[in-house]
């Protein structure tokens, strides 16, 4: 099998490729930012003394973690309009990724918080610190450093998952050409071959 690489076509689509890539990377970046913050909220919500909240959040995290991201992306994108909320593919993708990874990050934070020694909590009590200060000034600063490795892994994971956004058309198929080099090339080639052969 032989293909002809057509430079003029490649140049022609380059701006579109770049724009699509930028858009998707931005969605991933913002999605991650959502996940970093929402994950902490989910982790802290599981530590409130109010049991029903703890239970609901725990189950929600389990649910998000055990269902496929690609399905969640579809769900967020298509279900909104049914209730009158129209989301652009970009927004939907961002929300889905943010939600999905916030469940994972909440587990990272949870482990980090649980690893803070009991003595630290007791020292805060002995100094009569409020719950808010205990978390903000003592517990979270100690829980974050050990969480960084896990947070980094999931950042890599998000970038690996961004091609999935193509399923709802955040980037058109051409985006796949850059994020999935080989597969994309095949598609481009297919296009060329078809065009040349008048198919």
């Amino acid at each position: 099998m032989r293909f002809d690489w057509q430079w003029d076509f490649a140049w022609e689509i380059l701006p579109r490729l770049l724009a699509a890539t930028l858009n998707t990377l931005l969605a991933a970046g913002i999605g991650y930012a959502i996940a970093v913050v929402l994950g902490l909220v989910l982790a802290l919500a599981q530590r409130t003394p109010w049991k029903p909240l703890t239970f609901i959040v725990r189950e929600a995290v389990e649910f998000i973690r055990s269902t496929p991201l690609v399905l969640q992306i579809f769900f967020v994108f298509y279900v909104g309009p049914q209730f009158g909320i129209r989301l652009s593919p970009w927004t939907a993708g961002m929300i889905a990724i943010g939600l999905h990874y916030s469940a994972y990050l909440s587990e990272v934070y949870r482990a980090g918080i649980e690893a803070v020694p009991k003595g630290q909590w007791e020292a805060c009590r002995a100094l009569n610190m409020s719950t808010r200060d205990t978390y903000l000034r003592i517990v979270i600063p100690q829980a974050l450093p050990p969480s960084v490795a896990g947070m980094g892994n999931y950042l890599v994971g998000i970038f690996k998952d961004t091609p999935m956004l193509s399923v709802i058309g955040v980037a058109d198929v051409i985006f796949l050409a850059i994020s999935l080099p080989a597969a994309g090339l095949v598609r481009l080639f297919e296009g060329f071959v078809r065009r040349k052969m008048g198919m």
């Binding site: 389990e62 649910f63 055990s66 269902t67 496929p68 399905l71 969640q72 579809f74 769900f75 298509y78 279900v79 309009p81 049914q82 209730f83």
Partner: peptide, 24 residues
């Protein structure tokens, strides 16, 4: 199902629940 009926919440929601049940 979604493409032919636009019942997105039902179609994707059911699938989510099935995946969850299988996993959990």
């Amino acid at each position: 199902i979604n493409a032919s009926t636009f019942l997105s919440a039902q179609a994707f929601g059911t699938a989510l629940v099935v995946y969850y049940l299988l996993a959990r």
